[in-house]
Design a binder for these strands. Sequence first.
DNA 1: ACCTTAGCGGAGGTATGGTTCCGTTTGTCA
DNA 2: TGACAAACGGAACCATACCTCCGCTAAGGT
Lengths: 183, 183
Amino acid sequence: MRADARRNRERIVEAARKVFGEAGNDAQMDDVAAAAGVGVGTVYRHFPNKDALIGELVNQKFIAIGKLLDEAAQADGDKGEALLRSLAKGAEQMEADMATQHALSGMPRPAVWEMCAMTVAGVNERSAKLIESGIASGSLRPDMTVADIRMLMGGVASTMADPSLSGGWRRHLELMLDALRAR
Amino acid sequence: MRADARRNRERIVEAARKVFGEAGNDAQMDDVAAAAGVGVGTVYRHFPNKDALIGELVNQKFIAIGKLLDEAAQADGDKGEALLRSLAKGAEQMEADMATQHALSGMPRPAVWEMCAMTVAGVNERSAKLIESGIASGSLRPDMTVADIRMLMGGVASTMADPSLSGGWRRHLELMLDALRAR
DNA sequence: ACCTTAGCGGAGGTATGGTTCCGTTTGTCA
DNA sequence: TGACAAACGGAACCATACCTCCGCTAAGGT
């Protein structure tokens, strides 16, 4: 791969994150190209279609979340609380990244979701271990499952995506974490 | 207003609820017209544009929720629990109504939201009274606000809107209601 | 320095879907 | 029943946005 090609690919991903972060899923490919300082043709050389570009962004985000979970697994102290802290950090990282927000909150693009299947599976596996440990130690509600995380994070994402609720997502997250703790 | 005009308006709204319920916000005006058994022109005679039609659906839904809250205010027993029951009923009513789901979950159409401003204000007012009462009686968490309801119901709506989570919204709702109860 | 070819740019094709327009139909009232 | 206007239908219009195509540029090896 030629040096300029690699550089452009980087630029495109970065620009996409910025543009989708501002306009959501209905940002335009032309805008991404402009923001990256390249032509649309170049964008399509690197990503066959819009979903593939979005998929790349979302996948990167899930990889980051996976790393957070790994850290949580190694931290000492209660694993359940560590998991909840990871979720909070994950939300923080997601704040300016509407591509991921839309992937999580209602009406997802199936193609995008498929691209991330592998990464998501890894994330789920790690979550499951932490949940099990947290339940055993009594810090998480006994009936908690990985599906709960998916739904609740989706909910927080939907709050983030709504401009009229700006900032409110931290409160939403807090309520959600409370719901997951054992009584 | 001529008799057939009134009848057609009814049909259009009903068809719209069905069509948007199946395909979400990106259902097409032509489909609504077909489902109502009228031409597109007729749809546009009754509603100046797509947002107006969606707004009508969403507004009707908020009116229904307002009624639920009125019932809750009159029921005997704890007002906080009555509020939570209303939310559950409201969610139930919203299940097959993706138009409303999308209005609540991230990336709303501003025009739609504006059309409902009046109705929503009424809903908020009633919620506020019930919350106050529920906090006083110790059944709701002391820091609960109307904004919490908006965010959490939005979250549930986003779970409903995601076909891959079908049915999961009841669990999401349950967690959410737990989060709102006093500890 | 030169040649090969991967990579680039961006005008334009195409599909989708909201909205308009106007000739035709049909309810309603005298 | 006849006339008038209100209402209808749906083909056509137009804006939007994804994606393709192809002539050009310049990277990198020899």
